[in-house]
Amino acid sequence: MTEYSPLLSVKGLGVEFRTRRGVARVLDDVGFELHRGQTLGVVGESGCGKSVTALAVMQLISQPPGRITGGEVRFDGRDLLQFSESEMRRVRGNRISMIFQEPMTSLNPAYTVGDQIAEAVRLHEGLSKAASLARAVEMLDAVGIPAAAQRLHEYPHQFSGGMRQRVMIAMALACKPDVLIADEPTTALDVTVQAQIFDLIADMRERTGTAVMLITHDMGAIAEMADRVVVMYAGRIVEAGAVRDILSAPQHPYTRGLIACAPGRRTVAPGQPLEEIPGTVPSLLERDAGCLFANRCAKVMPRCRAELPPVTTQAGGHQVACWLNQETSA
């Protein structure tokens, strides 16, 4: 597809969770690529496997009950799934960092924010306490926290939600990682703060050249931030491609539904109710043979319930897994 090798390339990734009611197949044959300096958007409803994908890349899935059943996560040429735990520790927070959905609870309440940022620096770069704290000040300054040198010694509870997410970003970027995984970084924040955080992530990407994997269900943010988009549904990728292609010409009925549902789209007239995709995500415990979206799809065909649709690739690397697409292009 591309001539130069991607920074992060995931292929055929599968994850299962053992639950009391059976084994849930949470990720099935997930694959995507992330290139240096790029932003990859991963979208889908909650429970579609976006966060599990991120945790699988970081190797932070608790096993048991989770289990990575197969595939590869190739980072800078090497498969992370083959790494030992201690090798993986040198990657986490150093070369691949992650920020989370809940800034209110993602920082340890017992330590100052300075300690928590400096800890990663000391760990990965072996700096002295003073030097790592100096880096922490630098980082807090860079993410736009005023009076960084004083706030360094404050505790998370003394920061607002948006400020805490800034601290999280400072912590994640303190060791100048190659990849920043942002798992719904603004979901828990006020709308006005959301825009600021997205701007900050975009700005930091410009400045540091870090590639970003942005997990969100906010199509607006995707439109603004991402270069490429992966659309996930029930643990599988249903559509992937350049952000322009996906937004202007979505192929999969699910993607179309997602775009139609996005608030703030021009298609929704004032006073008109927002659209929604009917039904809910199917149980991951017993998967049917066919397309997982079949029971919610408005354009469902008999074939959809019988066989899993294969992936077709169109111009510009636009990939879709849908029978509808198969029929028209065939």
């Binding site: 970081m58 932070l60 520790r89 040198r90 990657v91 986490r92 927070g93 150093n94 960092s97 992650m98 989370f100 809940e102 609870t105 993602s106 920082l107 340890n108 309440p109 800890e119 990663a120 760990l123 990965h124 999280m168 912590m171």
Partner: peptide
């Protein structure tokens, strides 16, 4: 959540 953060840091 903050335990997950600490692990994501590489501790």
């Amino acid at each position: 959540d903050y335990i997950r953060t600490a692990r994501a840091k590489g501790l």
